[in-house]
Design a protein around this nucleic acid. Structure first.
Lengths: 207, 207
DNA sequence: GTCTATACTCGGATAGAC
DNA sequence: GTCTATCCGAGTATAGAC
């Protein structure tokens, strides 16, 4: 298949996405210029406009595709056979692992929402609600079955997601603890927050 | 006491801080111009430079003073007589209440760290560590006394702070729940995360 | 699809009058 | 302490050649 002059394997559009994501995460959407993105890709600024109609649509593309991939990944990972406790355990581990591997996209998705024009903002917000609803549903299942003891499913869901996403703010791959250890610690805290009865009774009969 | 020509009660520097904080929170440091800040205050852009040497020092002032006030407020609120459980309860309620009332400053303190020049960044980071250490200390006290059951005090501290600060992302003052209710729900989740034995035993002998 | 060149706007910051 | 006026660099985006 014939290739156009400047092509170097991956398509330019994909390289623009990748470099823009890194730069936006490091310094912020407003602080990064189209010239810089072009420089990182290795083209002139004008060439970017062959792939994205403007800077805004580049941001929108990054945020929407991140949320869509996240939702699709959880749908693929979720298991309808799970009890609520198992589902929450699975979710906690999934969320940490998925987000740690995509820290730039996660950071942008949170920080740059305000730089989206209203229509794009609504689109991303709606995807975010969809994702949050996965957790709310697990919590309500567990509440209904008596597996969980919680005061409010929506608030608990927000608390759990905030706690889990917080890993991204301090995690370093060569840190004191392995990702598996961190996953284990957080999963336990998440289950406790939901009032789940843990197997290793963390109650009065402590070690 | 005689006043200078343009003075309208509060000093100009304070009004600059206040307007800049609102604008930075709403649209981001990089996206806000000195002209806009000046417009909100009701002066010309050049007048800002009588109070702050440049845009960077305005940001630094906001972040440093926020962290210093936060630390001072907790020092005033903490009670050396508390058991670890009481201290963590007090901290959770304090953190939520203090942060909800200062959502702009909180937002900026997290989002605009990357726009601080290295020296200013280190200063703010050091203050942040001081604040985080308050929680680590409470957790280690409780671990030592057997009040808490936790795997790692630093990770638990980060998880708790992330969970609590997360309230700011969704709280609306006219929402479904009162701030007191939210405080109660979160405090319970925080204590559970630390493996505290709650009074209303949430263990096997559930309601 | 990419380049060079450029139009046009707006940014931070300063000088000097009042 | 604030104003008006201005410098100068940098921003997004487009036009037209290759």
């Amino acid at each position: 298949m014939a290739r156009t002059t400047g092509s170097i394997g991956i398509e330019t559009a994909e390289r623009i996405r990748s470099e823009a994501e890194k730069l936006f995460a490091a310094r912020g959407f407003a602080a990064v210029s189209m010239r810089e993105i072009a420089g990182a890709v290795g083209v002139q600024a004008a060439a970017l406009y062959n792939h994205f109609s403007n800077k805004q649509s580049l941001l929108e593309d990054l945020l929407v595709s991140h949320m869509e991939s996240l939702i699709a990944a959880w749908k693929a990972e979720a298991d309808a056979q799970d009890t609520a406790g198992e589902a929450l355990d699975r979710f906690a581990r999934f969320h940490i692992r998925y987000h740690i591997d995509r820290s730039d996209a996660v950071f942008i998705s949170y920080m740059e929402l305000r730089n989206l024009e209203p229509e794009n903002f609504r689109r991303v917000e709606s995807l975010r609600k969809t994702y949050e609803a996965f957790v709310v549903d697990i919590l309500e299942d567990g509440h209904a079955s008596g597996e969980f003891d919680l005061a409010d499913s929506r608030i608990t869901a927000m608390a759990i997601i905030a706690m889990l996403t917080g890993v991204n703010t301090w995690y370093r791959s060569r840190g004191r603890l392995s990702l598996a250890e961190i996953e284990g610690i957080y999963t336990k805290m998440v289950l406790r927050s939901a009032g789940a009865q843990l197997k290793e009774a963390s109650c009065l009969a402590a070690e």
